[in-house]
Design a protein around this nucleic acid. Structure first.
Lengths: 202, 202
DNA sequence: ATTTAGTTCAACCAAATGGTTGACAAATGT
DNA sequence: ACATTTGTCAACCATTTGGTTGAACTAAAT
């Protein structure tokens, strides 16, 4: 196997699979459709990835290993709480605007397959002790109102992740089109961190 | 057709379909599995609902018409903003704890089928003018900090809806089991409204 | 008692779908 | 040059899956 510029067929399969799986989910995705989008024969999918399940797992792991480190920033970065919130919000929204199907895809498949979810997290268990200590310290030092670290973590995640996962719901209720939605998301890069900081600062 | 206690077969089909569709989604759901769960022959599904698509739509509409009015409370209820936030948070979380698959199901299928989503909302278009006026008034009267009505609506939705949609992600990152998760959700009935009110009150 | 309409199911069916095979071409090593 | 490995595809295959059919059974209506 040449390491030069990794097999072009294999990578075009993976790219096509990413597109289809992330838009349609495992169950609704069709191997033929992936082959068509990759511009190759269906046999090639099996030649490189053996089965639909394995191809799916390759796509899922790639997606998850892209998203997880971003969320880990909240609990593991070294900066102050407010900087952490400001940076995460800015970075995450910027990133997801470019990959709008990612969070929904991951959440969807984790919901469908709790086994897989548990296995995934047991391999490399995140640890929020550091984050919890930081919150407790800031509370003790009178920097922020008393709040549970878990609840704050959920709130940060919710305010940043939900708008993309629930996009159709939001577009429907606010009766806005894609362009206006995107504008709202750009505003949220500062809107959300302001909101969180206002909620907890003394 | 007797109106007495609405056909027991038909309703047991609908109940089984709700369970399967909401847990697995349209694509992964199997007609045979629904029939098994309903304890009847597969032909009965088609006898009462013609096709998988129509059965799915019956389930989806039932789910959506349960959830939508709750969200409408935010934009249409008559009470003050703070009361609105307190009531909605309390009611919504209490309700969803009893129907944990609902929000994910609806969001999932809206994402998969943007056509359907657009049609759904064009039938009975929600209108946030009233809510927008309320926010603008409260801002003018110095009750709350300046904030865009759309952004506040998204934030309220996010903080309440996301934890259930993203449950596996949260359980994974916080490394907690179902029992602890449920405890966190119960705490959120007051936690979330406090958080929102703190974020916007002057 | 007989018709009629509604209900239920076992057995089928056609299409779709994930996966396999075998032949063949294109590199790659010797 | 030759042999071996690797890549590619058209044609198949087995199974699953949504959907149909026709016969039997029930219960009310005539």
């Amino acid at each position: 196997m040449e390491i030069t510029e990794s097999n072009t067929t294999e990578s075009s399969i993976l790219n096509a699979a990413k597109g289809i799986f992330q838009r349609k989910g495992m169950a609704a995705a069709r191997m033929q459709e992936i082959a068509d989008e990759a511009g190759i024969n269906k046999s090639m999918l099996h030649y490189y990835y053996r089965s639909k399940q394995l191809l799916f797992e390759a796509v899922f792991k790639s997606a998850f290993s892209t998203l997880a480190p971003q969320l880990n920033e909240i609990i593991n970065a070294d900066n102050s709480l407010f900087d952490k919130i400001i940076n995460f919000t800015q970075n995450y929204i910027t990133f997801i605007v470019k990959h709008p199907y990612l969070p929904n895809f991951i959440i969807q498949e984790l919901n469908r397959n709790p086994e897989f979810a548990r296995k995934l997290f047991s391999e490399k268990m995140p640890n929020i002790d550091k984050f919890r200590k930081q919150i407790e310290n800031d509370v003790t030092n009178g920097l922020i109102k008393p709040i549970n670290a878990e609840q704050l973590f959920i709130n940060i995640l919710a305010l940043n992740v939900f708008p993309f996962v629930g996009a159709p719901l939001i577009k429907g209720f606010l009766n806005i089109d894609d362009k206006d939605f995107l504008k709202l998301m750009h505003e949220r890069k500062i809107e959300v961190s302001d909101f969180i900081i206002n909620a907890i600062k003394i």
